[in-house]
């Protein structure tokens, strides 16, 4: 049934400016059936704007969005019938209980009471909220509210889910439960587009990633591939050095690349043995040796500086 060759949604050359500010500048990508696609990028990279264009809530200045064989924005209602959306901020109805939230949202899709009465208990079970069915969002924890938002996005049994930072602000337990639920959805054959700030989340959940910066796509691929393409295999971090200059001077020849961030120096190398040998003679230094990860990639591609206005 699931054919990874089939594109559920694709966008070509998306552009959007607000006044003089170009927020999205020629972004193209597609979401294939059964995959989880991650969109990562610093604040202000254009992630949320792209999601709004995918939903037809903003009209692009250039480019096209098509999904399920139809075009945005002409066929927006048809397309949205097959989409589930969890936006960055909860838009749950504070006056309704969990069950009522799902019922009311189901009615927006024209679903009958009969279908909803079958579906809603399953959705609550999926969201681990059966015991909270009669409680209102204000009485739930942050993680429960996010899971209710996810359950609500599934009420129309969508083929594709668009999730905007689904775990921002959650504690580790709630994040892990959310990840586990998202993975089970992908196993069931749903496709997911997910934006996130968390590189561990992107690395764990996503089959494929696109990296955005300043409204442009700067990299695309599977997490492992991207790391292999752009980074050396190992990183050695050296913390809180008093004489940074001389240390960098003496160790740099053993590393392919050196970065500094505040009091910490990062040495990147495919073969770290020479570095480790040199460092073994300096036991007073606090160091960490680890494989290169997605966070290193993200920082390499988008820079370590804090973005003004982000």
């Amino acid at each position: 049934m699931i054919n990874p060759e089939v594109n559920l949604l694709s966008c070509v050359g998306l552009k959007k400016s607000f006044g003089p500010l170009c927020v999205v500048n020629g972004v193209s990508f597609e979401i294939r059936q059964g995959e989880c696609l991650g969109v990562i990028g610093p604040n202000g990279a254009g992630k949320t704007t792209i999601l709004k264009m995918l939903l037809g809530q903003l009209s692009p200045d250039g480019g096209r969005v098509s999904a399920f064989g139809a075009q945005m924005p002409e066929d927006a209602l048809f397309i949205k019938n097959h989409l589930g959306v969890v936006s960055q901020f909860d838009t749950l109805d504070p006056d309704f209980t969990c069950v009522e939230n799902l019922e009311v949202f189901g009615a927006y899709f024209g679903l009958s009471r009969k279908i909803l009465s079958e579906r809603i208990p399953k959705l609550l079970e999926f969201a681990a909220l059966l015991a909270k069915a009669k409680e209102k969002p204000g009485e739930l924890s942050g993680g429960m509210r996010r899971r209710l938002s996810l359950a609500r996005a599934l009420v129309n049994d969508p083929q594709l889910l668009l999730l905007d930072e689904p775990t921002t602000g959650l504690d580790p337990q709630a994040r892990h439960l959310m990840w586990e639920r998202l993975q089970s959805l992908v196993r069931e054959g749903k496709s997911i587009l997910l934006t996130t700030h968390f590189m561990d989340e992107a690395e764990r959940l996503c089959d494929r990633l696109i990296v955005l910066d300043q409204g442009q796509k700067i990299a695309e691929g599977a997490p492992k591939e991207l790391i292999g393409q752009h980074l050396e295999k190992s990183v050695i971090e050296v913390f809180a050095i008093t004489d940074k200059e001389s240390l960098m001077h003496s160790l740099s020849p053993h590393a392919q690349r050196v970065e500094e961030s505040g009091e910490t120096v990062f040495f990147y190398a495919d073969d770290p043995s020479a570095l480790l040998h040199a460092l073994s003679g300096m036991p007073q230094l606090r160091t960490l040796h680890r494989p290169a990860n997605l966070e290193d990639l993200f920082l390499k591609l988008t820079g370590r500086q804090i973005r003004e206005g982000a």
């Binding site: 809530q57 838009t91 109805d93 949202f105 609500r152």
Partner: peptide
């Protein structure tokens, strides 16, 4: 933001 939620539906 009730409207924002509704706009995610058709």
């Amino acid at each position: 933001k009730t409207w924002d939620g509704i706009l995610n539906a058709p």
